[in-house]
């Protein structure tokens, strides 16, 4: 099963160009959403923790993250082959199999997300959704930074949402740290550059 022939774009690419520029791995939607997520997440996090007490900008950054997550999930069902959850979410056998190869100092040459990366992606999308939901429901009782859905739930729930929002943000920060450290690990230890394809959409394989 070759990813190249299934990305759609791949079919149109003549062989010599593949050798020179690499094969297509990430469609433009995946790439734009990823870097938009990086910016919106950093903005939401920074504004939440260090931003002004009137949190309008934090709310907008949060809504941006929400829009990105929703579009990415839809794209995970209807997007290009490597973007689809069905193409990269694997069972425990595949995940453990891949984990055993992690320590070998060779590039994985995966065209698409590898089975362990898939765990992060599904996990981070779920925790992001929880973060957004907790923000939407939170009522900090300052009457200016009230989540727009807090009025539809009891004050107990609105308080519990408030209490979850900060621990979730810390969890997300830790997950992102592991994500970035993994990418550094691939670059330095496994000699595989994952970042360039996230910009260009193409991966060089020798």
């Amino acid at each position: 099963m070759s990813m190249v022939s299934e990305t759609g774009r791949g079919r149109a690419i003549p062989q010599p160009s593949i050798a020179a520029e690499g094969v297509p791995v990430w469609d433009p939607v995946v790439r734009v959403l990823h870097w938009a997520l990086v910016i919106a997440f950093a903005a939401a996090w920074g504004l939440g923790k260090f931003g002004p007490d009137q949190m309008t900008l934090h709310f907008w950054a949060g809504y941006a993250v929400a829009a990105i997550v929703v579009i990415r999930v839809i794209w995970g069902f209807v997007g290009s082959q490597t973007a689809r959850f069905t193409s990269f979410v694997k069972g425990p056998r595949k995940v453990f199999g891949y984990a055993r190869e992690m320590t070998s100092r060779r590039p994985s040459k995966t065209l698409g997300h590898n089975p362990m990366g898939a765990l992060f992606i599904v996990g981070v999308l779920i925790v992001l959704a929880m973060q957004i939901l907790s923000g939407l429901l939170a009522d900090p009782e300052d009457y200016i930074n009230v989540g727009p859905l807090a009025q539809y739930v009891s004050s107990d729930v609105a308080r519990q949402a408030l209490a979850l929002h900060e621990p979730l943000s810390t969890l997300l920060l830790a997950m992102v740290a592991v994500h970035i450290l993994s990418i550094v690990f691939y670059r330095l230890y496994k000699k595989e550059d994952l970042v360039t394809p996230m910009f260009t959409g193409r991966k060089k394989i020798d």
């Binding site: 300052d142 009457y143 200016i144 930074n145």
Partner: peptide, 21 residues
């Protein structure tokens, strides 16, 4: 003025009030 006042509520709650009981 209401925005600014609400900011001072938040600022005290952030440091001195737990989020939940």
């Amino acid at each position: 003025a209401v925005g600014k006042l609400g900011g001072t509520c938040k600022s005290c709650h952030d440091d001195f009030r737990a989020k939940d009981f």
